[in-house]
Write a protein that binds this DNA or RNA. Structure first.
Lengths: 191, 191
DNA sequence: GTCTATACGACGATAGAC
DNA sequence: GTCTATCGTCGTATAGAC
């Protein structure tokens, strides 16, 4: 792996673990096994490197989500598979966490991939829900956009609860809970 | 207001806006209009001051939530009122955000109030949901614990989505969505 | 491309005068 | 109680040699 690659990967890890403010150039260099000069040769500075790291993480997240979304099965099947997918729950969402970093949110370039990724997720889930509703898999009363936002929020909030409790249990409960609520909207499961 | 009070209040604001790592003693002093010596006279250091600030914020959060929880009405009414309560959505949750700060999570003293507050919230909502189920306001199939986790996660995740989008819309949608799902579990609304 | 040297303010705290 | 002085380290680079 090239030095530039190692720098990006180290930055991705540190942004995930410690956030933008909590990540120093020195820490990035040490983890990447690169010197000062090397880092500043490849990147203009901390924001530039962070941008490369965030873009890559965002792209990876979309690809992994799309794997579930484009799988065979009903809309609810695919959303269920997405929600139950294996996750590094206690580490949280590498994109969602950036939302709490004022320095990231204050920089339009850094903010854009965060905003776009979460908006894409909601949109994609809304599409699935709308499709499921059209096919009669879901009740006509279900609001695809609102429900999509709920599903993404359950994940993002589930990470928060899990980190607070230092346990995956609240995350799993939140997912179980929303799946239970969603099941009540599946016409065939109505008593 | 005493100097110690102003220091605590300033710390509360800064922890909310910038998190623990992003908040420096100097910034706290400036906002409080106090000098170095003054701060270190009243508090042992940054962690000590943060502890006082976090405890107060946690206490305030419980009191405000309990106002809705102990109001008259059905369980669903009270949960709805809680979810629709006025909030500083774009600023996020002052307790939930600390969850993303590794230095807070690494310190048992700082972590405790965060953990306890979110756990209390889930427990309180689970109680309400269980009560509503016993009274027949909610379907027997509803899992109080899981659903409580879902409700709290929707709020915490809604903040994340709102901050990413720089708009309250996704937060409102997530709340609308979960209320819509919950409505399907109210026996009388079944067609 | 990578290294070392240098810079300068911020961070988090202590010491001691008033 | 509050102030100023001082301290050692870190953060975020730039400069220039190799």
């Amino acid at each position: 792996m090239s030095t530039a690659e190692r720098l990006i990967e180290s930055t991705r890890e540190l942004l995930w673990e410690r956030g933008y403010t909590g990540t120093s150039p020195k820490a990035i260099q040490q983890r990447a096994g690169a010197g000062q000069g090397s880092m500043y040769h490849h990147f203009a500075g901390k924001p530039d490197l962070a941008l490369a790291a965030i873009r890559r993480t965002a792209e990876e997240m979309r690809v992994r989500a799309e794997e579930q979304f484009s799988a065979p099965g009903t809309a609810v099947d695919r959303i269920t598979a997405y929600l139950l997918r294996e996750r590094d729950v206690l580490k949280g969402c590498p994109i969602g966490r950036l939302t709490q970093d004022p320095d990231v949110m204050a920089d339009p370039a850094l903010r854009a991939p965060v905003d776009e990724t979460l908006a894409w997720l909601r949109g994609r889930l809304a599409d699935l829900l709308a499709e499921g509703r059209e096919r009669g898999e879901l009740g006509a009363a279900l609001d695809p956009q609102a429900t999509a936002a709920t599903v993404v929020a359950v994940l993002q909030g589930g990470y928060v609860l899990a980190r607070a409790a230092d346990s995956v249990q609240p995350f799993d409960q939140a997912v179980t809970g929303v799946l239970g609520l969603l099941a009540a909207h599946v016409p065939t499961t109505h008593e």
